[in-house]
Simulated assay, not measured.
Amino acid sequence: MRIAVYIPLLLSLLAPLGVRPLAERCEPRLATWLLTASAFVLGTATTISLGLLAITGLIRFPEPAGLGHWSAHTAQRDDPAELSVALVAGLLLGAAVLMAARMLWRRARTLATAALEAACMPAEDGLVVIEDEAPNAFAIPGLPGRVVVSTGMLHTLDETERHILLAHERAHLTAHHYAFVALTQLGAAANPLLRPLATAVTYTIERWADENAAIATGDRERVARTVGKAALAAHNVPARTPGAALGILGRRTPLAAAGPVPRRVAALLAPPFGRHPVLAAATATVLAAVTLSTAEAAHDLHVLLETVGAR
């Protein structure tokens, strides 16, 4: 455990450096999968690493060691981790578990509320039109989900643009984008260093839906104009969408200096991104290293426990 247990923690520090290349150079569906997997795996691995370190601290004290028939004296002598490190890891582990549990509870409650709200909405082909002059459009996940569009947004867009908007929102539902957001938020709750990955996923799912709309209509430039037009129309409208909703306007938290909508428009006006195998391979390598190092650290702890229990 001298090195392996710290590798997930170290890679969590470096992970935000790969966010911008993945979000801006990689095909959005693949980027979403890679970012989500990275956030979830790193969040899980760092939590396990903190737990392993915390256990090495607990077995140094007679009372916890006695529960497992381990020798506290031997643990104090043979444990490679410093007691101060183990104690800090225990505190961080407690905070990570509490934050992850809080996030899961809030997310589950929000999704349940959204699903109930969607099921109660009268809809035609999954579309709900609400009487509201404020331009707005969003998708509510559920069984089935609903696309909600205000009359103000319908009056703002022409017929082709409405078709683009509906294709965008339905892409959120059919691809289950809320699940990607939830998993990355869970990883970021357990490890705050991963918050840039969660922020990036709220952007890449919008890009994913944009590309689906472009495929459905066959006109990337028209989709770009629709995204920009909808954003301008709703610029001064306060956000009133449910917490679980996914909208054509995207989240208002920028990943970089430029806001998400201008970057989405620029991406649509450029040729479609490729899969970028180098970035995909690099991400897969990092996740494999994290998984293997976590398994190695767990094995090292098992060996340590056998050692302190055998004397």
Rank of each mutant, 00 (worst) to 15 (best):
F61D: 15
Q76P: 00
G126P: 06
R109G: 12
T283R: 04
D210G: 08
T46K: 02
W70R: 09
A134Q: 07
A256Q: 13
H69C: 07
A267W: 04
V88N: 08
A270P: 02
D158T: 09
T202P: 05
A65P: 10
L35S: 11
L17M: 12
R162S: 09
N136E: 00
P141T: 05
A31K: 05
H163Y: 04
A54K: 13
A119P: 11
L104N: 08
R60Y: 08
L183W: 07
H276T: 14
R252K: 15
A280V: 13
G142H: 03
A75I: 06
A270H: 10
A239Q: 07
L116R: 15
L255F: 08
A112P: 00
A137S: 04
D78V: 13
L249Q: 05
L98G: 05
A119E: 10
E206Q: 11
A137E: 00
T241A: 15
A297H: 09
G274K: 06
A37D: 15
A81L: 09
I248P: 03
M153D: 00
R146M: 08
R195A: 09
A179D: 11
I130S: 06
F61Y: 13
L35Q: 11
H73Y: 02
A189T: 00
I205P: 12
L52D: 05
A54R: 10
D300C: 12
L42G: 04
A4E: 05
V303R: 15
L58H: 13
A284Q: 14
R20G: 03
F180H: 15
A234W: 00
R162G: 05
A288L: 14
A257H: 13
L166K: 12
L34S: 14
A295D: 01
P260G: 05
P80R: 07
P62K: 08
P271K: 03
T202W: 06
E306Q: 15
A86H: 15
L30S: 08
E24V: 08
G51L: 04
A89C: 10
V181D: 06
V237D: 02
V41T: 15
A213Q: 13
L30F: 13
I215G: 06
A96R: 01
E206Y: 08
H172R: 10
A65Y: 03
H163Q: 10
V227K: 11
A297K: 09
S84Q: 12
L232W: 07
L87G: 09
R252G: 11
G51F: 01
A188F: 00
L22C: 06
A297C: 01
I248F: 01
V41L: 09
I164T: 14
T160K: 14
L104I: 06
P141W: 05
S12P: 03
L35C: 09
A231V: 04
G68I: 11
E124S: 10
A282Q: 09
A256V: 10
T291A: 15
T56H: 07
C120F: 11
V278I: 12
L194W: 00
E27Q: 12
A72T: 08
H69K: 14
R106N: 06
N212C: 14
L98K: 03
I7M: 04
R225T: 10
P238Y: 10
S71D: 09
E124Q: 15
S84R: 14
T199P: 01
A4K: 03
A256W: 10
S71Q: 03
M103Q: 00
L165W: 03
L183E: 07
L35I: 11
G43P: 02
T226R: 03
L305A: 12
T46M: 01
G94D: 02
L246W: 05
G18Y: 08
G43H: 03
G187H: 02
R162M: 06
